[in-house]
């Protein structure tokens, strides 16, 4: 196999996300790359166009709070049991970020169009909602294959992120990444121009060598770079490896209610010694 992947430090990985890039991030429960998000904040990333696949929480809230994002395309941003996403909510109200509200399957459908090299993907539902009313880039056509006289059908333009960034359980030395049943990570990676991955561990076995492991593996052909980041989803939990750091998340939810509190959190939470 040709080696297409390279191994980087977290800060080198964060440097691979240019200012202004469209950046796809998975939901908080399926590989949110929190250590890499902190590295993006440390390097002062700005003007990012965040694409939540299909929702987000802490990762998006921190990037917005740190002034790293100009636009967020999402189906929902929330801290789950810890309440609303305070910096997201404040930035939307203040007009500090442009919001592009979507619905979960529409984001998947846009990425799936990109996966297939298609300009758009149709999707059922959504017609008559204000989600559609406020999306100038979505179109409704009459289904050309319809049996009924009229059958309005939503079309979504392909979503081709410049960068997809997520955290996964493991990679091998060739850059193959184990994603298990988190299939949306494969959709993201297939659709994106480049995919950057942080992993809990790098293993010596070739993940593609056996069918049992290959079935849950994102092949290195889709992976531009990997950084090893043990506990890279902290303070979120990650699969069955570690639970959420509830004290830390409660602390964040409380502090981030104000811009000052958020700044204080960043001082502590994004300090170079943390999460590397």
């Amino acid at each position: 196999m040709t080696e297409t992947c390279c191994f980087l430090s977290l800060d080198e990985l964060a440097a691979q996300v240019p200012d202004g890039a469209s950046l796809a991030l998975p939901k908080d429960s399926a590989g949110a790359p929190m250590a890499a998000v902190r590295a993006l904040v440390r390097r002062g990333a700005k003007d990012l166009h965040l694409i939540n696949v299909p929702t987000s929480g802490l990762a998006t809230d921190i990037l917005i709070g740190a002034g790293a994002a100009r636009l967020v395309e999402t189906s929902g941003v929330s801290l789950g049991e810890f309440g609303g996403a305070p910096r997201f909510n404040a930035a939307v109200k203040a007009g500090a970020v442009t919001i592009r509200d979507a619905t979960c399957p529409a984001i998947y459908a846009g990425l799936q169009a990109a996966e297939k090299g298609l300009p758009f993907m149709p999707l059922r539902g959504v017609i008559g909602s204000d989600v559609l009313a406020f999306r100038d880039d979505w179109k409704v056509i009459d289904n050309p294959f319809a049996e009924a006289a009229v059958d309005p059908l939503l079309l979504l333009p392909a979503i081709r992120p410049e960068v997809a960034l997520f955290h996964a359980r493991r990679a091998d030395r060739l850059g193959n990444v184990w994603i298990g049943v988190q299939g949306e990570l494969a959709i993201m990676a297939h659709a994106a121009e480049r995919t950057l991955v942080t992993v809990e561990e790098v293993v010596e076995d070739d993940l593609m060598a056996r069918e049992e492991s290959a079935a849950g593996t994102l092949p290195a052909v889709y992976v531009s770079a990997v950084a090893e980041a043990p506990k890279g989803a902290w303070p979120l939990g990650f699969l069955d490896l570690y639970p959420a750091d509830e004290a830390q998340l409660a602390d964040y939810a409380r502090l981030a209610r104000s811009a000052e509190g958020f700044a204080a959190y960043l001082e502590r939470g994004c300090a170079p010694a943390v999460g590397r």
């Binding site: 189906s75 941003v77 996403a85 997201f88 909510n89 619905t103 979960c104 529409a106 909602s129």
Partner: peptide, 16 residues
């Protein structure tokens, strides 16, 4: 909308 007085998370999969 979009600068809603109170902002909630978003529509999730409801529109579908």
């Amino acid at each position: 909308y979009p600068r809603t007085a109170v902002r909630w998370p978003g529509s999730f999969g409801s529109a579908y």
